[in-house]
Amino acid sequence: MTEKTTFQSDNAFSNDFGVFVYEQTITKSSGSLVEIFQNHGLITQLQDRLGYQFNQINYLINALTHRSFVHEYTHEARTSYERLEFLGDSVLGSYVSYALFEKYSDCSEGKLSKLRSALVNEHSLAKLGRFLGADKCLLLGRGELQSELNDSLICDVVEAILGAITLDDSINRAFEALANIISQYELEMKEDFFSEKKLYLFDPKTTLQELTMKEYKSLPVYESHNVEGGFRVELFVNDEKVEEVTCHSKKIAMKELALKYLNKITK
């Protein structure tokens, strides 16, 4: 028989909901996932932010269930969010593509593709997921509950939630939920989710190359010098030194230089 374990009260967990569900359904074997999801305040808040109430709560449960929880939860068959993530990825891509097509009517196909990549990357979606509160509602195994959540996992869950809404209702309803959460995000965070600025935040080196080729018909030049503890890297644009940084990594330094210069010239 597998020994049941409990969480010590002096441990600090950011996912209190996950700990509560783990203790009720795995440690004590006394709680129902469906009942918890139907009555817990955090789940209500998440659905309110989405502007969508699930007809079949099991879709939402699955969207928030990590494979580590499935392995430890033995009361009934459960699936993780991975298949829903696959579906939601397509939903997200379709919505973002259409929104960019409508907003940036003068952009080329290549630039639209790059901007879409900048918007649907892990960092951008994880910010949206945390705003939604999805990071506080995850069902995780014991080991994962004691580890810091990474952007990749939260990004996957955002996509899984969109997949869950699609199955629970329709793809158009998933589009509406995504539009609703983005609208709230922009209002409260004072940030344009579809901002063209995210393109150079995502890939500043490429953006700078395109800019200098357009303006000066030349590429930016990075010169590296060995110094104690790393490298001093200098950025030259149109044969003029414009920035320099010292860093342990040339690659990181070049990205930082491109970003600093782009921020300076776009203020």
Rank of each mutant, 00 (worst) to 15 (best):
T2Y: 06
T5F: 08
T5H: 10
Q8T: 02
F17I: 06
V19R: 02
Y22C: 05
E23H: 02
Q24M: 11
T27H: 03
S29E: 07
S32M: 05
L33G: 09
L33R: 00
I36R: 00
I36Y: 01
Q38N: 15
T44Q: 13
T44I: 08
Q47H: 00
G51E: 01
G51H: 06
Q56Y: 10
I57H: 05
A63F: 08
L64W: 03
T65K: 05
T65N: 02
V70H: 09
H71Y: 13
E72Q: 01
Y73Q: 03
H75S: 14
E76F: 09
A77M: 09
S80M: 01
Y81F: 08
D89S: 12
L92S: 05
L92W: 11
G93Y: 02
Y95H: 15
A99R: 11
F101T: 11
K103M: 13
S105E: 15
D106V: 15
G110S: 07
G110Y: 14
G110N: 06
S117T: 12
L119H: 07
V120A: 10
S124N: 14
L125C: 03
A126K: 02
A126G: 04
L132W: 15
D135R: 03
K136M: 14
L138S: 03
L139H: 13
G143Q: 12
N150I: 08
N150Q: 05
L153W: 06
V158S: 10
G163P: 01
G163D: 09
L167N: 05
D168N: 14
D169I: 04
D169Q: 12
S170V: 03
N172C: 05
A174I: 00
E176A: 12
A177N: 06
L178K: 00
I181F: 13
I181A: 07
I182V: 12
Q184K: 15
E188L: 13
S195C: 12
K197S: 14
L199V: 00
F202H: 11
D203G: 06
T212R: 02
L219F: 15
L219N: 06
P220I: 04
P220F: 12
V221L: 15
V221Y: 10
E223D: 10
S224N: 15
K241F: 13
S249F: 07
M254A: 10
K255Q: 09
E256R: 14
A258G: 12
K260G: 11
Y261R: 10
T266Q: 13
